[in-house]
Design a protein around this nucleic acid. Structure first.
Length: 358
DNA sequence: CAAACGTGGCA
DNA sequence: TTGCCAAGTTT
């Protein structure tokens, strides 16, 4: 196949099949010279890292309503931003989002760099995101290589080398297809193709604009690509959390350390998490009772969390009391919200249940 | 380079 | 229930 033909096919297909997304300037508007807002492209791209479009939409709407410009975001309280990110996962993204916003709003005068080189290296902006912003927001001919592109290109060229070893080869192949015309639309086109036609399971090869060019399809192995190295099994870890409130209803919460799992997020005090529940002390004296257990799976381990509840907390040894009016379950990362949901269903009857104090 | 880093949907 | 997967980055 000739390199130019792939991009021409994809751009023609995109003109008729582009997804309508909240952060996107569609092909028709783009032809009318409407430009994407770099802030919105950056925000959406960071949210979309390892995250589905469906999950991102509501968060994107909320963030852009609360903080319409990078200056607004840069001026926000850390706690507010982390709370709004809660539930989306990979919380280092939110910490880096704030760092990046403050660099752009400060040293860079409120303007995002308009080249891949200028973007790369800003907090949370790696090889993919720098290329995505440069191409989509600034129409630079940079090559995006995300999971969609890896899938499309590995099938198109029948690359059987497993990922991640195949990444350099796939990047080189993808780069050869990137056009000088409409590079921003092209980047979105190839990702849309991967998301809607060249899907991980049961690809719709019969309606694919690249059907007759696809070597993987010709060889009958398209659906099995890309190959991936085997993954490690997830171990089980165990721990305890204490979901407690003071007599006036204030909740005992803490902010987790800025680095590591759930870094910078609000959570319930508790033990560390390990193969066996580590030795620990409750965060405050109270008549703690067992509410049950919560199961949650992280990227690299399963967690079984024993949830303790009490509503008669004394002076805490750790954490701080958050007045009931300031507490929002939606500010919690999902595992902590699960613990809250379990606890809140029982806290009304904690007095009857509790007979073992700690 | 391997590992850490979240979550929800789907087969 | 289990494993795979989603617009990756950082250490």
């Amino acid at each position: 196949m000739r390199d130019a033909s792939v991009s021409e096919r994809l751009l023609d297909w995109y003109d008729g099949h582009a997804r309508d997304l909240p952060w996107r300037v569609g092909p028709a508007a783009r032809r009318a010279d409407e430009r994407p807002d770099p802030y919105r492209i950056w925000l959406s791209e960071v949210m979309l890292q390892q995250t589905t479009v469906a999950a991102v939409k509501a968060y994107f709407q909320r963030f852009t309503t609360l903080w319409p410009t990078v200056g607004d975001l840069a001026a926000a309280e850390d706690t507010a931003v982390m709370g709004e990110w809660a539930g989306l996962g990979y919380y280092a993204r939110a910490r880096n989002l704030l760092k990046c916003a403050r660099i752009v709003a400060g040293d860079l005068g409120g303007h995002f760099p308009d080249t891949r080189e200028g973007l790369a290296g800003l907090p949370g902006i790696g090889p993919y995101t720098s290329a995505a912003i440069a191409s989509i927001a600034f129409d630079r001919p940079e090559t995006v290589v995300d999971g969609n592109v890896e899938r499309v290109i590995s099938r198109l060229h029948a690359v059987e080398t497993p990922l991640p070893a195949a990444k350099p080869e796939l990047t080189a192949l993808a780069d050869a297809h990137t056009p000088q015309v409409r590079p921003g639309d092209y980047a979105q086109a190839i990702m849309d193709l991967g998301a809607t036609i060249c899907t991980p399971r049961s690809p719709a090869c019969g309606i694919c604009p690249l059907m007759d060019m696809c070597v993987g399809r010709a060889e009958g192995i398209a659906a099995t690509l890309p190959r991936k190295s085997p993954k490690k099994a997830k171990p089980v870890r165990r721990g305890v959390v204490y979901v407690g409130r003071r007599a006036d209803g204030a909740w005992l919460v803490e902010t987790r350390p800025q680095s590591g799992l759930l870094g910078g997020m609000r959570g319930w005090p508790g033990s560390d998490w390990a193969e066996a529940v580590p030795d620990h002390a409750p965060p405050a004296d109270a008549k703690w009772a067992e509410a049950g257990e919560v199961r949650h799976t992280f990227t690299h381990f399963h967690l079984i969390l024993d949830v303790m509840i009490a509503d008669d907390l004394k002076e805490p040894r750790r954490g701080r009391f958050l007045p009931s009016a300031e507490f929002r379950p939606s500010d919690l990362p999902t595992v902590m919200r699960k613990a809250f949901d379990l606890a809140s269903g029982q806290l009304g009857t904690v007095e009857q249940q509790s007979n073992g104090s700690v």
